[in-house]
């Protein structure tokens, strides 16, 4: 038996919006600790790692570890049938379920709807991600990061990110011309609009802009985003999901041949 309830479906909708364009399908691994998803996009260039801890749910019960293979477009269709303020319960009866139910309850309890979704067998590679001490860790407003990725995507396919003590610079160029956005570190680190940089050594890396734009679909989840970078290893882009977990995106860099 698996059952997990959230007071408001809005969080789950935002989580799904943050991954459904990058991934077609994914295994939801459910344990007593919570729900985890790790999946690569089709081209194996980026990876999504999602964690929702059990203590962040209003109610959570997982008698035995189970893996639910989910078609994310199907789940997104079902989630769109809920109102943001609905309570949502995810329920699977068996230890090895072939279907999962979503129950939406309106705040006044006057409307209850349930949707059953077929699960699928997904045979996917799992990657071991080593703990890394990154050369630069930048925290910045998530809306600013989204704006930069969107604006610069018009100029070129590749985005160069350079980070130093002075700040972080995003650059691109293409047929139209070139573009640079520099952000300086702010003095007040506690505010939502703060830009903070922890640096061991300066870093310059090149990434496909298209994937960064996909990652910014997580912007509604968190006012801040954290970028962790070291030379010649994948970028880590991390959004917190309130106090209940986080969504991490890894993106392999482009490297000179």
């Amino acid at each position: 038996m698996f059952e997990a309830s959230l007071a408001q479906s809005a969080i789950l909708k935002k989580v799904l919006d943050a991954i459904k364009d990058l991934l077609n399908e994914a295994n939801f691994e459910c344990t007593d600790d919570g729900i985890k998803v790790q999946a690569m996009d089709n081209s194996h260039v980026s990876l999504v790692s999602l964690e929702l801890r059990s203590d962040g749910f209003e109610k959570y019960r997982c008698d035995r570890n189970l893996s639910m293979g989910v078609n994310l477009a199907s789940m997104a269709k079902i989630m769109r049938c809920s109102s943001n303020s609905d309570k949502v319960t995810i329920k699977a009866q068996d230890d090895n379920p072939d279907k999962v139910s979503f129950i939406f309850e309106s705040s006044n309890q006057e409307r209850i709807s349930d949707y059953e979704m077929k699960l699928m067998d997904i045979d996917a590679d799992q990657l071991g991600i080593p703990d890394t001490e990154y050369s630069c860790v930048v925290k910045m407003p998530s809306a600013e990061f989204a704006r930069i990725c969107k604006d610069l995507n018009q100029f070129g396919e590749s985005l160069v990110i350079s980070c130093s003590k002075e700040g972080i610079k995003f650059s691109t160029s293409g047929d139209l011309g070139s573009a640079n956005v520099k952000l300086a570190q702010t003095t007040d680190a506690d505010k939502d609009d703060a830009v903070t940089i922890e640096m061991r050594s300066p870093v310059t890396l090149t990434f496909a802009c298209r994937y960064l734009n996909h990652f910014t679909k997580a912007t509604p989840l968190s006012s801040q985003v954290q970028l962790s970078m070291s030379d010649e290893i994948p970028l880590l882009v991390e959004y917190r999901i309130g106090d209940m977990g986080c969504i991490k995106y890894y993106l392999a860099p482009k490297i000179d041949d």
Partner: peptide
């Protein structure tokens, strides 16, 4: 420049 795959950095488990 060439786009690397994640398997160049993270090992399959």
């Amino acid at each position: 420049m060439s786009q690397k795959k994640l398997s160049s950095f993270f090992k399959t488990i």
